[in-house]
Nucleic acid binder design. Structure first.
Length: 264
DNA sequence: ATGGTGGATGCTCCA
């Protein structure tokens, strides 16, 4: 099974880029974030025409929004609420092979890395704490689980272009990294991508729009992740970060992250 | 220290 996760930054604007992803990489399952469309206007027919007949989506007007596109049936589709908000940041489903998939769009957290001053950063930290509590309560060591999404945190030093210069920049501050790592360790998640592209190789999935030339200085961050539970670890067979997608016409600021898992 | 760009929306928010 080939699984992709991608912050597409508007599915309606980039439906042709989604088509390109499917043609070039042929994923079986695609998890999207920032679809930026209410459910009534989700381009379901266009997605089905690409071969993804089983679709789950949970969106709102203007912001956020997540979707799971699958060639195979999805079961037990569910969207959980986080921090008491209805803001469309999570969607889960069970894939063939009894694999429980969770797709997340973690709050970006605003500009100021101080929860006292910045409500968005406080929201991000609370969201991470809730994720930790939820998985601690709902995991089981034998369950095949996959967690993907735009987690809006680059946890490792080699996940950013400059560890030192980003220590006070939201996405790489110690408190965020600590909370994300706590989720990972307390619920036994395996970073699927780093199994194949280990530290200290630099690896990014996002480059800001706020630069004339995103390749200049290669100032990226790895904000998009694929984690698996221990029962799937030995079945991982590859991982790719589709860096080239940042050069596609009218690109998202994030590129797809792809993981292959042997299932039979 | 600042502003840089892009998307959805509608006289501005979010990333």
């Amino acid at each position: 099974m080939r699984l992709a996760t991608w912050n597409i930054n508007s599915i309606r604007l980039r439906i042709d880029l989604l088509k390109r992803l499917t043609e070039e990489q042929s994923p079986d399952v695609i998890c999207l974030q920032e679809t930026k469309v209410v459910d009534d206007l989700f381009p379901a027919d266009a997605v089905k025409a690409l071969g993804y007949l089983h679709i789950a989506f949970h969106g709102m007007k203007g912001y956020n929004g997540v979707a799971i596109l699958s060639r195979q049936p999805l079961e037990a589709v569910e969207s959980l609420q986080w921090c008491g908000k209805q803001d469309c940041r999570h969607l889960s489903a069970v894939l063939p092979g009894d694999i429980e998939l969770h797709n997340f769009y973690v709050p970006a957290g605003g500009d100021t890395p101080d929860p006292e001053e910045n409500d968005k950063f406080a929201h991000k930290l609370a969201f991470l704490d809730e994720m930790n509590a939820w998985f601690t309560a709902n995991r089981s060591s034998s369950r095949k689980m996959v967690l993907v999404g735009d987690l809006n945190i680059a946890p490792l030093e080699s996940d950013v272009w400059s560890h030192k210069q980003l220590l006070k920049v939201v996405s790489h501050t110690p408190i965020e990294v600590e909370k994300l790592t706590a989720i990972q360790t307390q619920s036994d998640w395996v970073d699927a991508v780093r199994q194949f592209i280990p530290e200290p190789e630099r690896l990014y999935s996002w480059w800001s729009y706020r630069s004339r030339d995103w390749t200049k200085g290669d100032r990226g961050r790895r904000l998009d992740h694929v984690w698996v539970s221990p029962p799937l670890r030995d079945f991982l067979s590859g991982a790719t970060v589709l860096r080239d997608a940042r050069s596609w016409e009218k690109p998202s600021d994030h590129v797809p992250v792809i993981v292959d898992i042997n299932t039979d």
